[in-house]
Design a protein around this nucleic acid. Structure first.
Length: 387
DNA sequence: GAGGCGTGGGC
DNA sequence: TGCCCAAGCCT
């Protein structure tokens, strides 16, 4: 690196960096922040299934599930996933389709594939031991900056800051810095977060860094909310420079679209079956997963759906209509399905929970009571009146 | 570095 | 029924 001193006769082409304007917390503010946050977390931490467990595998699974996913959705899947795959070895040995089936409804299915791959890597090359440092964890597929820091601090007490969407929002509001999607903006947040993390605990049973990181996220998730922050309940109100007001860039626009799917069932000796379509293995979206056969809208113009619901995928709000074809009687609707025969198959409803269903298919089949939660019940009442 | 990848809650 | 997002990662 060259010297930063410039010769006096050299005219600077750009103004000097506005170092004096760096709005980070000073040392005293950081101390107050950390102490108040810790006290608050002790009293207000939610009881969540993955809290208070001392099993790095479980921490890892929970953190992968929590990526861009709401706590409530994770709670719905976490216990069942761990019953099916209680150890990293069990996960590594399972067929990928089983892992996807257990993930059905959580979204971002690549996470499940990468989790599965990482488990196989751990078993085959690391003797089944989950790496204990953030640097080593970072090498696993599906484990990035956030997740490596989260697992290392929560499961192993490493003193490293996690920065997720919650932490970023909290730190932007506390410091008053406007949100900007630039390297400088991210570096600022990273510096602030790092300055707040406690040292690794020496007392056995204590985990100051892990608790602090979870407290930061908990604050963002329950108090420092995106829309209407609950500032009067905030433990760091005293040191907050904005108290809820901060600048954010405009968000991407949303689209809306109407789509239709076919619900076709038949009765066999072994039980009721439903017609499903398997998505292309090369599809970018939900590759290889099963869904109800899509119908062209012009094939259903004169009909009434048995079910309407909303389903959003990334930037698109889908208004979904489900049309029923009973047994083999309704051939016209059945023939309107554009899919080729080799991607269509009849699946026994009693075994649907073993299939990697898309979230929408799962939701529809559940809604009309073909598939109950967990897939344990036998089907009943397939004919449902339109709402 | 931008864009792709799912879903459901809430107003 | 429109819109905003939530404990990110990979390419």
């Amino acid at each position: 690196m060259a010297s930063h001193r410039s010769s006096p006769d050299l005219k600077p082409e750009q103004p000097l960096l506005p170092v004096a304007l760096d709005p980070g917390l000073n040392h005293a503010e950081a101390m107050v922040f950390r102490r108040h946050l810790a006290a608050w977390y002790l009293r207000h931490a939610r009881e969540l299934p993955w809290r208070g467990v001392s099993d790095a595998y479980r921490t890892w699974v929970s953190e992968i599930m929590l990526q861009q996913t709401r706590v409530a959705a994770v709670i719905d899947h976490y216990d069942r996933f761990l019953r099916l795959f209680p150890t990293v070895v069990a996960l590594a040995l399972a067929p990928e389709a089983d892992v996807l089936a257990a993930w059905s409804g959580l979204g971002y299915y690549r996470r499940a594939r990468m989790l599965h791959k990482a488990a196989q890597f751990i078993v085959e090359t690391l003797n089944g031991a989950i790496p204990e440092s953030s640097a080593e964890l970072r090498k696993l597929p599906g484990v990035g900056e956030y997740t490596s820091a989260a697992i290392a601090s929560i499961a192993f007490g490493e003193s490293i800051a996690v920065v997720d969407g919650n932490v970023e929002r909290v730190l932007l509001r506390v410091t008053g810095r406007p949100e900007e999607a630039t390297a400088a903006g991210r570096a600022f947040i990273q510096r602030q977060a790092a300055a707040l993390v406690p040292h690794k605990a020496r007392t056995p049973g204590k985990n100051a860094p892990g608790d602090h990181n979870q407290a930061m996220m908990e604050l963002g998730a329950t108090i420092c909310l995106p829309r209407a922050p609950l500032c009067l309940h905030c433990p760091v109100f005293d040191v907050c420079r904005t108290r809820g007001e901060h600048l954010t860039p405009p968000r991407a626009k949303q689209r809306s679209e109407t789509v239709a799917f076919l619900l076709s069932t038949r009765k066999k000796a072994q039980g009721v079956e439903v017609l499903l379509e398997q998505r292309d293995h090369a599809a970018s979206l939900m590759a290889g997963m099963y869904e109800l056969p899509p119908l062209p809208l012009d094939a259903v113009e004169d009909r009434e759906p048995i079910l309407r619901l909303r389903h959003s995928i990334t930037n698109t709000n889908y208004y979904v209509e489900i049309y029923a074809a009973e047994g083999t009687h309704d051939r016209r609707l059945r023939r309107a399905v554009p899919a080729s025969k080799d991607v269509l198959s009849w699946q026994r409803v009693a075994r649907l929970h073993e299939l990697p269903l898309t979230g929408l298919a799962r939701k529809v089949l559940h809604r009309i009571d073909v598939l109950s939660v967990g897939g344990l019940n036998t089907p009943r009442n397939i004919h449902v009146a339109a709402p």
